[in-house]
Simulated assay, not measured.
Amino acid sequence: MNKFDCIVVGAGPAGLSASLTLGRARRNIVVFDDGTNRNRVTHESHGFITRDGIKPQEFKELGLKELKKYPSVSYFNTTITEIYKEECQDRFVVKSSDGHSFFSDKVVIATGIQEVFPFVSVREYYGKSLFSCPYCDGWELRDQPLLVLAEKEEQALHMAKLVFNWSRDLVVLTNGVELSKEAVQELNKHNIKTRFDHIKNLIGENGYLQKIEFESGEILTRTGGFVVPSFYRPNSFAEKLGCEILEDGSLVTDGAGRTTEKHIYIAGETEKSSPSSLLISAAEGNKAGVAVNTDLIMERF
C-alpha cells in the first residue's frame, strides 16, 4: 500500500524545503508536482542568497537532486486531482491523474498560485520584459524607460512608488481606469506620467517589449515594466478539506503552516494567495516541515 507519514503536493521552493526537512527527519514522504509553477516562464530568479540569477527550472532540479539523498523521500511528476479524509481510517487519500491512490497521516499543500493579467498579450512578455515584482527584477530593468500597468488606483500608486526606486523614466498605464486628481498630482510631482487610454496591443519581439499601442492609435515606446496581476489558487484542496479562509483569501494558520484542520499544513504562496520570493517561500516550507515532524513526534512518542 502507498502509505506515507506525509504527502507534499507541489515541488516549488516551499514544497521542496518542507520535503528536505522531512527527509532529514527520516519521515516516509512522497512529493508530487506537475510542472505548472508560475515562475516557469521566468528566465532568472533573484534575491535567494547563493542562488541569485538562477533559472527556476535549475533551482527545482537542484532541489529534487538533493532530495534523492534521502531514501525515505519519493517523487512523482504527476497532477493531484483529489484530496480527502477517510474518516474510518483517520487518514488522507490523495488521488493522482494517472489513476493511483496514496494514503497519508498528514498533507502539506504547497501548490502556489497563478496570475490573471489585464489582457492576454501581457503573457507573451511576462518573465522576459514584464514582471510583477520589482525586488525580483528591478535591478535588471534599472534606468530603462518603464511602464507600470495597474487597473486599480491603490495598486498603481503603490507599484509606481516601488518602481521609481529603480527607474525615473516611468509611465503609469491604467487601461481605461481614471485615477483621482490627488493621485495624478502625487505622481506628477515626481515627473511620473499617467495614461488612462485603453490599450490595444503590446508590440515587441521574442518576449521583449518595444512599444504600447493605444486604441486611439498613439504609440508609447517602453522597453519593459511591471504589471499588477490578480492571483488565484489553481485548486480548491484547502476549501474542500474545510480549512478556514479569511475574506481576503488568506488561509488561517498558526504561523508555522498548521491550518485550522488538523493534519493539514500550508506552505508558501498558497497560504496568502499572493506572490512571495523564493527565499520566503523556502523558509515557510521549512517551518511547515518542522511543524509536521514535531506533530508526528508528539503523537507517536
Results as ranks from 00 to 15, higher is better:
L130V: 09
E58P: 01
Y75F: 14
V93N: 15
S74T: 07
F102Y: 13
K106F: 05
E115N: 14
S129E: 10
E61Q: 12
K85Y: 12
K68P: 03
V107H: 07
D52A: 07
F131T: 03
I49N: 12
Y126K: 02
D105P: 06
I54F: 10
V94F: 07
S121P: 02
V73Q: 00
L130M: 13
S132D: 13
K55E: 15
V73C: 10
S97W: 05
V107L: 10
E115R: 12
S72K: 14
Y126D: 06
V122P: 02
I49H: 12
S74D: 03
I80A: 07
D52N: 13
K55N: 14
K85D: 06
E87F: 11
E86T: 11
Q114W: 08
T111Y: 02
F103R: 08
E61C: 01
E61G: 00
D105I: 04
S96M: 00
I83T: 01
L62M: 15
V94T: 03
S104P: 01
L64H: 03
V93T: 11
T78N: 11
K95H: 01
T111D: 01
G127D: 11
Y126L: 13
S101P: 03
G53T: 08
F59C: 04
L130S: 06
E58G: 05
E82G: 01
F131S: 06
I83R: 03
G63I: 00
G63D: 10
D137H: 11
V94A: 02
F59S: 05
V73E: 08
E87L: 13
I83A: 06
E82P: 04
C133A: 10
D90R: 15
Q89A: 14
T111R: 04
Y75E: 00
F131L: 07
E115Q: 13
K85P: 00
T111G: 04
E115L: 07
T78W: 06
S101A: 09
K95S: 11
L67R: 05
Y75D: 00
I49W: 13
S121G: 02
Y84N: 08
C136V: 01
K65G: 10
F103G: 09
I80T: 09
D105F: 05
D90Y: 11
K55Y: 05
Q114R: 15
S97L: 09
G53A: 11
C136E: 05
S72E: 14
K95Q: 08
S101N: 10
S129T: 15
G127C: 05
I54E: 12
T81E: 11
Q57D: 10
S101F: 04
L130W: 13
K69A: 06
A110S: 07
E87W: 12
S72R: 15
I54V: 15
P118F: 05
H100G: 00
C88G: 15
L67C: 01
Y84R: 07
G138C: 04
N77T: 09
F102M: 09
L67Y: 06
Y70S: 08
F131A: 06
G127T: 00
F131Y: 14
S101E: 14
